[in-house]
Design a protein around this nucleic acid. Structure first.
Lengths: 148, 148
DNA sequence: CTGACCGCTGCGAACCTTTCGCAGCAACCT
DNA sequence: AGGTTGCTGCGAAAGGTTCGCAGCGGTCAG
């Protein structure tokens, strides 16, 4: 973790607290974690931390641009640290596995939406659903319909 | 609405009920409706219908392939009728407007994911977020950060 | 047409995730 | 060190979705 997260917060008038540090570290450690999971990770160090604090902290960290969240379907959103390389989440509706691919594969798609519809896409915000390589090859089984 | 929705249900051993007909009609009328909105529409005809019935009915209708749902971010999912022409939802994070565009614009993107990662995309399931034409031109205003 | 299953519905409560109000604590400035 | 006031923990509330149950009513056999 870079060391300027404190500056990032201070700049915007936020205070530096252990909770914020722990939540940020948890997000960076876990990658693609839900608030609940982040809480669990944080509590390995500080038992007393509350779930509402996690939510409030994530909001702040997102506000100052240290973390982002993405939706992977019905479930709760997942948070991850902001990093150099933006990526797209491919979520398998069958096995729930999340794969990250570089956003370059969507470059043309994004440009097309901008050119044709004037729509500026935030490609990393929502995941792409479907079936992963292994699952699509054994499609049409009982659980096939308990997709998201 | 085609007339074979009854057959569609019967085939799979489901019964034909007024509730199911009304929910299906509501979905077709409203396009992009949440369960809550569907309930309201249904209740214009039959006051007594319950919200749990709407949920259960949507599940059944989705199971037999008469409706689908898509996620537009934090909010509840939206349901729409299955139709010939699959589309992608562009959701503006600023004004919340939902725009539908033909799925062809994503053809290359989808093919690329399949070729490079073996991932079979269900492009209509999750919406694409970003800023619509009008909103992106007046970006960076106070509400800019209450995005999804 | 009639009777009898049992699937479907309405209702209320439970559940889960997220938000809020409040009082006390503690980070920051001076 | 001391005062402000932002942040936290806690409990409750809110919002969306699911579940259990008893009774109604589609459906099908007779």
């Amino acid at each position: 973790m870079t060391e300027d997260w404190e500056a990032r917060l201070r700049e915007r008038g936020f205070r530096i607290t252990p909770q914020r540090q722990l939540v940020l570290e948890a997000v960076e450690t876990l990658r693609h974690a839900t608030p609940e999971e982040i809480l669990a990770e944080v509590q390995r160090t500080a038992t007393g931390v509350n779930l509402s604090t996690v939510y409030r902290t994530l909001e702040v960290l997102e506000d100052v641009g240290l973390v982002t969240h993405a939706h992977i379907g019905h479930g709760p959103p997942t948070y991850h640290a902001v990093e150099e390389h933006v990526h797209i989440h491919l979520v398998c509706d069958r096995c729930k596995k999340v794969e990250s691919v570089p956003s370059e594969v969507a470059e043309d798609f994004v440009r097309c939406l901008e050119d044709q519809y004037g729509f500026r896409t935030d490609i990393s915000h929502v995941s792409v659903h479907g079936l992963c390589d292994s699952c699509k090859n054994r499609a049409f089984e009982p659980e096939a319909d308990d997709l998201l």
